[in-house]
Design a protein around this nucleic acid. Structure first.
Lengths: 335, 335
DNA sequence: GTGAAAGCGCTAACAA
DNA sequence: TTGTTAGCGCTTTCAC
């Protein structure tokens, strides 16, 4: 079978402890013995068995990541961030996709634990109290990432949605738009980030004494955006709207698609902006003006927090807020 | 610390072997004892330590997946397939992204091995002989997935690119296009799937006595597509081309973007089709006519192969070819 | 500086 | 049906 520390010890003519010492640099070993051991390792192509090592050290060097769907580009970007800094600190990623099923999430959480992961990052799109409680019970570092809901009281990394929304609204106003409609996903959804975003929008709108105009799509997807196209078209005419601020890039794309299919030009006939700066936003034509949520950084900071905690550092603030950026592109024009 | 099998045994008043038996259902246990054990497990919230278990059984239930970049949507889809069927058979995914660096790939391969993964799936975009040889040396099931290069002699899952290309060319011809230009990524690249695709294109073009027209982009990306826009525009006029068959959706999108920016309409002025059916192809406007490469299925079949091999089944053919599909959308019109 | 031995948490003979 | 025991491959005291 596979070559073990014993084989190396035998070949080098030393004890296994000595071999262990040289591979871990844990205690001084005389140069000559070290050489012999190193040669033996080389000759046999020995690679320490991490499983055995984990069993005794209780360090798996594994971080468990539970995501809704790796197919979402923002999730993939977060994972990139997680992976890349994880790698820097020698942590591997154990990945599970729940596809939104709470039972699956729960099962994964337990599975990850039994695999002795040292920390867990949960990237979710709903709020699932049971799973969160379960993970908290593991007593290992845990970060909760949710683009759609506020992680009240949970360690998390996000942006200040209130501020981001205000910035975008102000920008639209500065472009000369008088009537700006905000498309939300679900209005009055408790704990949703939409609460903050709507607040930011309203604040600015009221400050400049314009009319609050809010339309609710039935969700966050491209399809949802497309589906409110018809309703929106009517409202636009009625209320003389010139700019639509979508709560997600996907909705903006769905809307632009609807307009494309109905011969309405963006931004000539109507300005549309998104939120998130998902990959599509920069590829799409017209290129979409949006708020950049730094997904990669969110992932990176999340795992950094976990590693810090693992290293015994105390994390003061529960939530880390990352800087946002308004990305000015082509889908909104000056009036 | 964490509760172990010993704690359970003590609480239940039995030996650890009995506990092991009930959690594994490996040997008969009397109903009353089983109940006692189950109760103890429940009371203590005991979860078997998989690391310890792995050490003795030599089964980690881990499949290592090395990818170029999880941010590519096709990669994410493959991983979905891998994950979902892996889960069905109780395998977890250990994920690593190499970002195209061969040294990193190599390091990951070794790392995965030391973590005792039972199989490896390598999703690569170049050919890296060293890494492949290294992995082969592990003597564990291995599947090689590469969308751009042929995996000569390696266990892999893919589509018949020759056939796919021929089908698309034929389709364009049937639409009434007389002069069809094929945009390749790199011409004459040894081992590239472009060899097969160009062959498929040429075969049909010659069969119908049309002119072979091939243009080479400098790569596979949206940007590469955009960058040849200018050259292509000239050739289109010169040769009276009405349809452009792009070797990748990304190139098609780049090209359509170029045309959008230069007021050339797709498909009115020029028909463009892609290859791959990456997520963008269906979202984009105009929706892109393309060849569907079944990424999810490729991933699913790949891991299924590994699991079969792990179960002792002998896999006969080295490469599994999955059915393709022509997806007729809006970017190509009838002449 | 080096070796012997205990033990991480578990499974799997082997006995009883 | 149950318990005892020997490891799995490694790290880590504890002697020397």
């Amino acid at each position: 079978m596979s070559v073990t520390i014993k084989d190396v010890a035998k070949l080098a003519g030393v004890s296994i402890s000595t071999v262990s010492r040289v591979i871990n640099n844990s205690k001084p070993v005389s140069p000559e013995v070290r050489r012999k051991v190193l040669d033996a390792i080389d000759e046999l192509g020995y690679k320490p068995n991490q499983v055995a090592r984990s069993l005794v050290t209780k360090k798996s060097n594994l971080i468990g990541v539970i995501v809704t769907d790796i197919g979402n580009s923002y999730v993939a970007q977060m994972i990139r961030g997680i992976e890349e800094v994880g790698r820097m600190y020698n942590y591997d990623i154990l990945l599970s996709s729940s596809y939104g099923n709470p039972d699956t999430e729960m099962k994964f959480a337990e599975l990850l634990r039994s695999k002795q992961v040292e920390g867990i990052i949960l990237i979710s799109e709903t709020i699932n109290k049971d799973v969160i409680d379960e993970i908290k019970g593991f007593n290992i570092p845990f970060v909760y990432l949710n683009k759609f809901y506020k992680a009240s009281g949970l360690p998390s990394v996000s942006i200040d949605n209130y501020e981001a929304s205000a910035i975008m609204t102000k920008y639209l106003l500065e472009l000369g738009h008088e009537n700006i409609l905000y498309v939300t996903a679900h209005e009055n959804q408790l704990g949703s980030v939409e609460e903050d975003k709507i607040k930011g929008y309203k604040e600015i709108i009221n400050k400049f004494k314009k009319d609050e105009l809010i339309l609710s799509a039935a969700g966050f997807t491209i399809e949802d955006g497309y589906n409110i196209g018809n309703d929106l078209e009517k409202i636009i005419k009625e209320k003389n709207i010139t700019a639509v601020f979508c709560c997600q890039d996907e909705i903006a794309i769905g809307l632009i698609n609807y307009f494309y299919d109905n011969q309405i030009k963006v931004p000539e006939d109507i300005s549309i902006c998104g939120y998130g700066d998902t990959k599509m936003a920069s590829i799409y034509r017209p290129e979409i003006t949006t708020i950049k949520e730094p997904y990669y950084d969110i992932g990176a900071v999340a795992i950094r927090r976990i590693i810090k905690e693992l290293e015994g550092e105390k994390i003061e603030e529960k939530n880390t807020y990352l800087p946002i950026q308004l990305i000015e592109r082509k889908s909104c024009r000056r009036i």
